[in-house]
Nucleic acid binder design. Structure first.
Lengths: 191, 191
DNA sequence: GTCTATAAGCAGATAGAC
DNA sequence: GTCTATCTGCTTATAGAC
């Protein structure tokens, strides 16, 4: 990342925030321009198209998830430890890019040329996640229930973090990681 | 519910499916008409406006959630039992109205006149949920961790069920209820 | 209940001046 | 780098024929 924020970076930041709030389709180039106090035509001096904005916002973050998941997957750890690292990964990204996370979750289907590539990234991510859970069940670290339910349940929570993190400014990332790990892995019931 | 499905019911059903797939803003009246093999103008013989469709889809299901949550909240049960009933409630609605659930989750912000009412329903629902968890912690049934994290984590999973239920036709609702309850309440780690 | 025709406005994007 | 002016096509919705 360069030290100075370019005009293009600023446009991407503002767009991500607006897309997250109302969705890609509901936001117009005039909305983005207005939020930056310029005219819509001026945006095209910095970006190619509205679709170009969506691509930049989604693909960068999807690639980061996939790469870091690959690192976790191939690390020397127990399955439970890998799960803890996945939780940390999601919390880290949600803290840094809450708006992009929202766009990734809700507007990926509006990608045009990059849709197929995005789906490959997502499949790679989910396959790694599934393998980790399967290994955990085989090794006896995790309960022997339906793998898909475990993957679905944990991923649903992690993918929704972007909605929740900006609201609770009181909770530090370390605190959140600790508590969420406990809830997701050990459950909420007292023995 | 009447026995015969009216043309209006059919329009609502088709709209919910399309809205769920691409979002309210991305779907045009022409898209809905085309999916029904009629012209867009004909839709207006049955419904007032596009916004009217959104209102019907979202408010009906939001009211059902709030009413049934109220019943659970005021029932004579332990907190853990109430949580099990909430899980069943979400699975039940997600099985019956997967498309509406998607629209409720992702397009509520496009409600116009009914937005405030929707937010009241949602707040009522979440307040009841929070109270149940707080009671569970006080009574010692649940671990004494951050209430908001427990509420957020479970609700995130339950609200995403609509994405997942149509995919796994093999899993019966009873089976899903049993497994999901175990994962959400007891966790996934073996002792 | 569906159609054609059309109104009135808004969308993304470009050209060219400054 | 931003502006004004503008093109072209699409949007929701209505009027009125059948």
């Amino acid at each position: 990342m360069s030290k100075t924020e370019t005009r293009k970076d600023e446009i991407i930041k503002v767009s991500a925030k607006l897309f997250k709030e109302k969705g890609y389709s509901a936001i117009t180039m005039r909305d983005i321009a207005k939020a930056m106090n310029i005219k819509a035509a001026s945006l095209y001096n910095h970006i190619k198209s509205k679709q170009d904005l969506l691509k930049i916002i989604i693909i960068s973050i999807a690639e980061e998830f996939t790469i870091r998941m690959q690192e976790i997957s191939s690390s020397e750890s127990t399955s439970i430890e890998k799960l803890q690292k996945i939780i940390s990964l999601h919390i880290d990204i949600a803290y840094h890019y809450p708006y992009r996370m929202g766009v990734l979750n809700n507007d990926w289907m509006h990608l045009e040329e990059e849709l197929e590539y995005y789906l490959e990234l997502r499949n790679s991510y989910e396959d790694n996640f599934r393998s980790i859970v399967e290994s955990g069940i085989e090794s006896g670290e995790m309960i022997d229930t339906n793998t898909e339910i475990i993957v679905f349940s944990i991923l649903s929570t992690l993918r929704s973090l972007y909605l929740w993190i900006p609201k609770k400014e009181a909770l530090k990332p370390e605190e959140l990681t600790k508590n969420l790990t406990q809830v997701l892995i050990s459950g909420i019931q007292n023995d």
